[in-house]
Design a binder for these strands. Structure first.
Lengths: 127, 127, 127, 127
DNA sequence: GTGGTCTAGACCACG
DNA sequence: GTGGTCTAGACCACA
């Protein structure tokens, strides 16, 4: 977690969890650390962790119970995405790719890098 | 331009300009509307447009002169990206793709959509 | 800070911070006053201070977080400059030195004064 | 003259003239092109050139008469600078050098580059 | 309590 | 007529 980055900490935490799920490091049913625990580990306020978990819950990636804390609710194998999500997501993808293209990244280079990222998820999640 | 969105207006404006450049709708040398003009068109304060333009200038995409206003300084054909940019960009790409994968978008589906977006840029910019 | 000067206030603020870093009065990790605080101290609007800090961030000299405000991110000891920066900078140096020479400052005098300034940075930063 | 630069055109014109004097390309008594002529050559309004000449006159580098137009009034050999000028100039020098140092240019490197610029003036002006 | 965003209006610099 | 600067005040996001 890079405390001196422009993206808010709670978003960074969410992003790391999301990537861990995509990587297969976190699978359906796995428990996340308690907010206080993770907050202590990262050196941030547990409210900040709370906010990140809240976001993940809102997206349906985890569920939060008083008893067992935060648990991964879905991963890459848990079934297809919600209808409509893909299109909304592609809008954001389009914005991100446009930036790279406009700034001079070759179209082929962009494709290659997309493929590389996807492969990194596939490779780690498959076995 | 969606004023009721969570992303700041000035970022939305920047994103639209970046996409227009990637699409080829804006090419090197083209003029952008004046800040006051675009502000009036969008129903936002010209300072907000100013901030968007300032960001675009900081990224090297446009140049701003008092005389001719904002002019596109580089497009997809203007030469390679800054060294190091691609890697920084890929970090953000990884985060975005991870979200899709975690939420159940098939890896192949992700690849296909990346390719589709890239092609849309290539198709419009090429001819 | 001279409010009745031709150089914009926000640039004067930036310059003072840059000089403080070069002098070693501000070192990596040091905090800058909050924008509202410094604004009040200087008798200027906090937006003006904000603009100065924004410039410093764009140059990589400080980082800004909502929590801890503005913090010095690099000083003279933080490693080499960006490639290409030195040449761009030398262009500006050439313009400034040319003025002194044209107005009758002896070439030796110019050299001596350059050395004196550099030494003042070295002396204060070294111990 | 770089029309798409952040520095105002009239300042760029002034800077080029100042450098030409420091370089010895323009010597005391030499004539500058008429404002309309130079404006046409550079593709800018002659009022803009006028403003540049006005600045040069204010600094005492040229004199302007209706009859002979703008003429170089002093160059590097025309005698010592005005008292007090050197100190005011050094303030600006300090700001510029501080930036380089803060951004990681080595103190020795700065000294070397200062010397290189001074030498370039000496070499061209001497013979 | 910190910075971020947005609005609003004034005046100036540039060309 | 263009952008640049500065002021001012409001509300929100973050920690």
């Amino acid at each position: 977690m890079d405390l001196d980055r422009e993206t808010p900490i709670y978003l960074q935490i969410r992003d790391r969890v999301v990537e861990a799920i995509a990587d297969g490091d976190l699978a359906e049913g796995d428990s996340l650390p308690s907010t206080r625990q993770l907050g202590a580990d990262l050196g941030v306020n547990f409210h900040t962790v709370n906010k990140a978990y809240d976001l993940l819950r809102a997206q349906g990636l985890i569920r939060i119970t008083r008893k067992s804390g935060a648990v991964v609710r879905r991963d890459a194998r848990s079934g297809p995405a919600e209808p409509g999500y893909a299109d909304e997501w592609q809008e954001r993808l389009r914005t991100l790719l446009a930036e790279a293209v406009a700034l001079g990244l070759d179209a082929d280079e962009v494709t290659v890098r997309c493929a590389a990222v996807v492969e990194s998820f596939r490779a780690k999640a498959a076995p």
